[in-house]
Computed example of a mutant assay.
Amino acid sequence: MSTRTPRKATVYDVAAEAGVSIATVSRALRTPDKVRPKTRDIINEAIHKLGYVPSGSAQGLAAQKTGSLGLFLPNVDELDTIEDFNPENQDAATLQLDPPDERPQANSLYLDEVLRGCELESWRQGVSLMVNVSLGRADADVTQIANDMAGKVDGLLVMARSLPDHVVDFLSKRMPLVMIADAPTSIPVDLDLVRVSNRKGMSALVSHLIESHGVKRLAYLAGPNDSPDNHKRYEGFCEALQSHGMTYEAAPIYRGQFSQSIAYSITKDLIARSTLPEALVCANDQMALGALEALDEANIDIPGQIIVTGFDGIDETNMSAPRLTTVRQPMRNLGRAAVQLLMQRINNPSEGSQSLELPVTVLLRESCEGHLDPIG
């Protein structure tokens, strides 16, 4: 006995059942407030009776909108290639030792939170979110992928460093686009932008180290040279030193690349050479966690012998030993604000560009302050 899939009801069937024109049905679906209530009720009854499901793509074409946003993220885990994956169809369980010296990497935690914020706000706004990652791809490939995505969405959210500047320039002239973290530096473009107070946050933290703890020898564990966050944070580091009559050129800079494992190795080397500063100021939390681990292995007292600080405020910093002093930025709200700004741009394309800067909070914890009594 064969079965046949019943024919799906169409907008033509709904119009015939309701006794109205196709244009009226379409208008009732797109802008129901512009259709008389009695007519709208008749159309809804016909839709329910026939089991009609509106076509999202058709509605999008009619309204010249897709109901989707695109998000471009940079290389989140620093891999150049991804191996082929072939899933095993096997009902099995395997025991495997997990040695404690295998340090987990957390390079994408910041982006995870920003992405979550974009997802939440997209849901709240009633639109879907398409995500792409420029994972070790060549410039030409990234350009092609960006162009393809641009044809499927109403607007783009672009995290700094995820697309070449010339691609951002091209896309911004074609469709609504919001930059997250920073705008392109090599081309003069006037774009909507959402970022956090990186410079002010780092300056406030370093000023506290100098004023409250009398720190005079500091070192800076930096991120990638092309990171706008790293650039602004280093500006804040230098600003604090200069405002306290200190020479920032004398403070060593170590290239940790925002990597926990690289920061671990750098700190191990500083310990071996007996060149630890009084305070190791890290441009992100992952590097600070790597430094804490290396110092703990060497039985170096924190903060008695050295102060360690981070930046971002990821959850792991509240569980480290000692808990990490850090600058918490509103990562999830950064994503939400970017989506809100993009929706404003889509709905009001002629308005001037906006630049939002979200405040940060310096969280003073045990890696800087020593013992703190628990709340309550």
Results as ranks from 00 to 15, higher is better:
253 I>F: 07
34 K>G: 08
332 R>L: 14
83 E>N: 14
161 R>I: 09
326 T>N: 04
297 E>A: 05
117 G>F: 01
217 R>K: 11
280 L>R: 00
290 G>H: 02
202 M>P: 04
103 R>P: 13
155 G>T: 02
254 Y>V: 09
129 L>N: 00
148 D>G: 09
35 V>N: 05
179 M>E: 01
75 N>M: 10
178 V>D: 03
161 R>D: 08
53 V>Q: 15
327 V>L: 09
239 E>R: 10
325 T>I: 08
272 A>N: 10
264 Y>M: 07
123 W>F: 10
121 E>C: 00
114 V>R: 10
57 S>C: 08
164 P>H: 05
9 A>H: 01
64 Q>S: 13
53 V>T: 15
115 L>K: 07
289 L>C: 01
124 R>G: 01
8 K>M: 09
99 P>A: 08
333 N>H: 15
115 L>M: 14
177 L>W: 04
63 A>K: 08
216 K>Y: 05
104 P>H: 09
38 K>Q: 15
43 I>H: 07
288 A>H: 04
282 C>K: 04
116 R>Y: 07
65 K>A: 10
49 K>Y: 13
164 P>Q: 07
141 D>A: 06
127 V>G: 02
139 D>K: 12
59 Q>S: 14
375 I>Y: 15
299 N>R: 12
146 A>G: 03
188 P>W: 02
83 E>L: 13
203 S>F: 07
298 A>C: 04
29 L>P: 00
152 K>F: 03
152 K>R: 13
78 E>L: 15
307 I>N: 04
164 P>S: 05
211 E>M: 04
191 L>I: 12
17 E>L: 05
10 T>Q: 04
60 G>A: 09
373 D>M: 09
182 D>S: 14
120 L>N: 11
334 L>F: 11
266 I>Q: 04
4 R>Y: 07
25 V>N: 00
331 M>W: 07
248 Y>P: 11
18 A>E: 06
38 K>D: 15
151 G>N: 02
143 T>Y: 03
64 Q>G: 08
210 I>E: 03
60 G>I: 06
228 P>H: 02
159 M>G: 06
34 K>T: 14
176 P>R: 02
153 V>L: 02
92 A>W: 15
235 E>K: 10
258 F>P: 02
158 V>R: 03
